[in-house]
């Protein structure tokens, strides 16, 4: 190839890749700008703190904000212990050629590929009808108590959905703890569990928290899994118990966009709801990122 052709090809490729990168940033910017511009207009203190009224065309979305936050929190509380323990078993305790561990890994990968609406149906069938129904029978409830959609079952369904994310990132984090630190600990007469608790888990903590960040951002935005398992169409009361139903920003957005009699009039609160959902997801992410940066810095500089 001649110099000029080489140069042209080089420049062309640089341009093409830059364009692709710009396209990504551009799409994101476009979405954010559109949502922020249209949403901010309708955003007010009252909108953030009041329940909806007038067939959801007026009032605010406070129950949906609260419901989303509570749901995500419960999901995190459920998914982190199970996910971290599973990853610890797979990476620290399972024998290298363990057939069981291999099956668990295959299951985790497949779990990650299941469409989220299937999780919704699974939640309905397993948690509500099977677990809830049996709980009601065992505890002697006459009417439905646990065997109905609720924030508990919705958060557990989301926890199952986000489990692969936590397991994979925790295993990655455990793998990143240097072997020398493990051997140093064992050579000092520490048991395997002491090594795990004092060296391996603290070293893996930033990576584990990354898993939490990913799980939270995935879980907070999912609507399909909670459709049948706990999200309420309209419920001005806040969920006070584990078996309460709840409003959810994502579901509320869906309801406003598809069920509203007047689309133009609904677009104001709709945009504002989407803006709040995005802000909430970003805020939850930010908190996790800050915690992670702190622990990482702490791990690097120790004490």
């Amino acid at each position: 190839m001649k110099y000029t052709t080489r140069r042209a090809v080089g420049l062309g490729l640089t341009g093409l890749t830059a364009l692709a990168a710009f396209f990504i940033v551009g799409m994101l910017a476009l979405i954010l700008l559109d949502v922020a511009r249209n949403g901010a207009r309708h955003l007010s203190w009252a909108f953030l703190t009041q329940p909806p009224s007038d067939g959801m065309m007026a009032g605010g979305i406070f129950p949906a904000i609260f419901g989303t936050a509570a749901l995500t929190l419960l999901m995190t509380l459920a998914v982190m212990p199970v996910g971290v323990l599973t990853a610890v078993y797979l990476h620290e305790y399972a024998p290298p050629e363990s057939r069981f561990a291999r099956w668990v890994r295959v299951a985790v990968v497949n779990l990650a590929g299941v469409p989220s609406i299937v999780f919704g149906l699974f939640g309905l069938g397993f948690f509500i009808l099977f677990v809830g129904g049996n709980l009601d029978r065992l505890l002697g409830y006459e009417e439905m108590h646990w065997a109905q959609p609720s924030i508990l079952w919705a958060s557990l369904t989301l926890a199952v959905l986000t489990l692969p994310v936590v397991i994979v990132s925790t295993e990655e984090a455990l793998r990143a703890v240097p072997l020398e630190q493990r051997t140093a600990s064992l050579a000092l007469g520490a048991t395997q569990s002491q090594t795990l608790a004092r060296v391996v888990l603290p070293g893996a903590l930033p990576g584990i928290l990354t898993g939490a960040v990913l799980a939270i951002s995935r879980g907070a935005g999912e609507v399909a899994p909670i459709l049948f398992t706990g999200a309420a169409y309209f419920l001005p009361d806040l969920p006070t118990q584990l078996n309460s139903q709840f409003m959810h920003l994502g579901y509320h957005t869906y309801v406003m966009a598809t069920q509203s009699p007047n689309v133009t009039e609904a677009s104001g609160p709709l945009y504002a709801t989407v803006l709040v959902l995005l802000a909430l997801t970003f805020a939850l992410n930010l908190v996790a990122v800050i915690i992670r940066t702190r622990t990482r810095r702490k791990a690097a500089s120790a004490h």
Partner: peptide
Amino acid sequence: RRVGMVFQKSNPFPKSIFENVAYGLRV
């Protein structure tokens, strides 16, 4: 505990100097 070991590559824990030395005692 009776037969200790020092490795080729120094491998302190990402902890304070004090905690590194105290590690074996604490465990």
